[in-house]
Simulated scan of single mutants.
Amino acid sequence: MNERIVRLADAKATQILGIELGKSLTAGSVLLLTGDLGSGKTTLVQGLAQGMGIDDSIVSPTFTIINEYSGARLPLYHLDLYRLTPAEVDDLQLESYWLGLETELGIVAIEWSERLLHLPSDYIQIELTYDPIEGRVAKISTIESI
């Protein structure tokens, strides 16, 4: 596991981190996003989409659960599990997104990923926090199967 801490001065810095990720991630990449309400998860995904070349307006799919974006170098699958229990999440069989079983393999970004019962074998965990003294912080961990 690789881990790094990124200090984010403001929402713009969070978006820039997303842009950098969007330019560098490859098909099959999965981002598991955690953090309190307002910590910057959706802002990060907005930057991710921009870095991928997606021009659509990116909003959190809190009620639709999944937003799919195409027309860029790779598809983006943006999921928000906030309103669901882990059992409800499990019923959705979301692994089909990161395995490319029913959709084209792309980049998967999952907000409130702590509700997942089954994790992909490889993923990037991004924990976003806000500290009144330190400001916004992104703890980025890369988890790879051996």
Rank of each mutant, 00 (worst) to 15 (best):
M52P: 03
M52K: 01
G53K: 09
G53C: 09
G53Y: 10
I54H: 05
I54N: 02
I54D: 05
D55L: 15
D55I: 06
D55K: 15
D56A: 14
D56G: 02
S57M: 09
S57N: 11
I58Q: 08
I58H: 09
I58S: 03
V59N: 09
V59T: 12
V59A: 11
S60M: 10
S60K: 07
S60F: 06
T62Q: 04
F63T: 02
F63E: 07
T64W: 02
I65Q: 02
N67D: 11
E68Q: 13
E68D: 10
Y69M: 07
Y69C: 09
S70F: 14
G71Q: 07
R73W: 00
R73D: 03
R73F: 00
L74E: 01
P75H: 08
P75M: 09
L76C: 11
L76E: 12
Y77C: 09
H78A: 03
L79D: 00
D80K: 11
D80E: 09
L81C: 08
Y82Q: 00
R83A: 06
R83N: 07
R83C: 06
R83P: 06
L84R: 10
T85Q: 06
T85C: 03
P86W: 05
P86G: 11
A87I: 13
A87C: 02
E88V: 00
V89G: 02
V89C: 04
D90H: 11
D90L: 13
D90C: 02
D91R: 12
L92T: 00
Q93R: 13
Y97E: 07
Y97G: 08
Y97S: 11
W98K: 00
W98Q: 04
L99V: 03
G100Y: 07
G100Q: 08
G100I: 01
L101D: 14
L101F: 05
E102H: 13
T103S: 15
L105V: 09
G106H: 12
G106E: 13
I107P: 04
V108H: 07
A109C: 02
I110F: 10
I110G: 03
I110A: 08
E111G: 06
W112G: 07
W112F: 06
E114R: 15
R115I: 04
L116M: 13
L116P: 02
L116D: 02
L116V: 09
L117V: 12
S121P: 12
S121A: 12
S121E: 14
S121R: 14
D122I: 06
Y123R: 06
Y123K: 04
Y123N: 00
I124A: 07
I124L: 15
I124V: 15
Q125R: 15
Q125M: 05
I126F: 04
I126W: 01
I126T: 01
L128A: 03
L128S: 01
T129D: 14
T129K: 08
T129N: 13
Y130M: 01
D131T: 06
P132D: 10
P132K: 01
P132G: 02
P132M: 07
I133V: 14
E134K: 13
E134V: 08
E134S: 07
G135M: 08
V137K: 12
V137N: 09
V137E: 13
A138Y: 04
A138F: 05
A138S: 08
K139E: 13
I140H: 04
S141F: 00
S141T: 15
S141M: 12
